[in-house]
Computed example of a mutant assay.
Amino acid sequence: MTNTQNIQIQLVSRPTGEPTLDNFKLVEAAIPELGEGQVLIRNHYLSLDPYMRGRMNEGKSYAQPQPLNEVMMGGTVGEVVASKNAAFSVGDKVVGMGGWQQYFVVDANQRGVIQKVDTTHIPLSAYLGAVGMPGVTAWYGLVKIINPKAGETVVVSAASGAVGSCVGQLAKARGARAVGLAGGADKCRYVVEQLGFDACIDYKEHRDVKSLSAALKAACPDGIDGHFENVGGMILDAVMLRANAFSRVAMCGMISGYNGEPIPMSAPQLILVNRMKIEGFIVSEHMEVWPEALKELGGLVATGKLKFRESVAEGIAAAPEAFLGLLKGRNFGKQLVKLV
């Protein structure tokens, strides 16, 4: 292997409020020599995900804090370029937590640090989206928490994103009515026309709870039985006003408060009045369901039944800006960084 330099993005300071480009630094590091059992992987794509914002903080979040002056953590897909491990050969395509860098070395004897993936019918990048952590997140919240019956109505916030887009399509596959919330007419059109949701509400057109609740009433004439929450705040308030008795809410993300903003709930009494079940979850704590989830997701993607869209930033240096854009909803679908 001729190249011995590895370009990385490190977190060098913790943001106060909104993160900025100054919180990140591009550094060059040498690629270490391989030891016995180790594998060198060249990353092809980096995954950018909202949970990374919580990791940038020192304080308590559901994700461990990201150490300063170390490579930003995150999911990657790539190719084995050198191996001293009998289980992995040069050319194998793998998914793992390679971080924001061009290359990484792992001890492949540790179970689960990298997984081989088959790219015959599923594109490599999809293993960071619909057939990866976001897809399993969607699957778990929908199947294990909301568990919709045919004919029930499921609402999804951030419906055009990597997670939300899967939630609606999986709900439709189970015979439920799927209603999305997304920011902007283009995203809403995509959610209905390409992903097959029954309706999609542009939350940017509804500046208060009353207006958003009225739009939800029109889109969900039979009320709301299940809600997959990625945003929180006003969206959750509006959904709760339209929730049916015994409705279920899967709490996946609260991006409206990721920079430390308070997220008040305007009518928590509705939890009692409607006998609602509200459950938060972190998908990495449910590894036992991943094989079942990935089997369904992989089958749907391979046969073209599960559609997904990607926003791709080019080159490692573009990662911080693409990540800041993701937090502001500038991405359309799954946000990736392409390195190869």
Rank of each mutant, 00 (worst) to 15 (best):
T4A: 10
Q5T: 15
Q5K: 15
N6Y: 09
I7S: 14
I9F: 05
Q10Y: 13
T16F: 15
E18C: 13
L21K: 13
F24W: 07
L26D: 07
P32A: 12
E33G: 12
G37P: 02
R42D: 00
Y45K: 00
Y45Q: 02
S47P: 04
P50K: 07
N57V: 10
E58T: 11
G59W: 10
G59H: 13
Y62T: 11
A63S: 14
Q66Y: 10
P67G: 06
P67H: 09
L68D: 08
E70L: 08
E70T: 14
G74E: 07
T76H: 07
G78W: 04
E79I: 10
A82G: 02
N85E: 11
V90A: 05
G91T: 03
K93I: 04
W100F: 13
F104C: 09
A108Q: 04
N109G: 11
G112I: 06
V113E: 06
K116G: 02
I122Q: 03
P123V: 06
L124N: 04
L124Q: 03
S125Q: 09
L128Q: 02
A130D: 01
G132Q: 05
P134A: 07
G135A: 07
G135T: 04
G135M: 09
V136G: 12
T137D: 07
L142S: 03
A150C: 02
T153I: 13
V154H: 07
S157T: 07
S157Q: 03
S157P: 01
A159N: 10
G164H: 06
S165R: 11
V167A: 06
A171R: 03
A171P: 02
K172N: 02
G175F: 13
G175Y: 09
A176H: 06
D186A: 14
D186Y: 00
C188T: 00
R189E: 13
Y190H: 09
L195V: 05
L195C: 02
G196Y: 02
K204Q: 15
A214Y: 02
D222G: 12
I224W: 04
D225Q: 07
G226M: 00
E229R: 12
N230L: 00
M234C: 03
L236Q: 03
D237M: 02
A238N: 01
A238H: 00
M240H: 08
A245Y: 14
M251F: 05
G253K: 06
E261Y: 11
P268C: 08
L270M: 11
N274W: 08
K277S: 13
H286S: 05
W290D: 01
P291E: 01
E292W: 09
K295P: 07
E296D: 12
E296T: 14
L297N: 02
L297P: 08
G298P: 01
L300V: 04
V301D: 01
A302R: 04
G304S: 04
K305Q: 14
K305N: 09
K307V: 11
V312D: 03
G315C: 11
F323Q: 01
F323T: 00
R330N: 15
N331L: 04
F332H: 10
F332G: 01
K334W: 07
K338S: 11
K338I: 08
L339P: 01
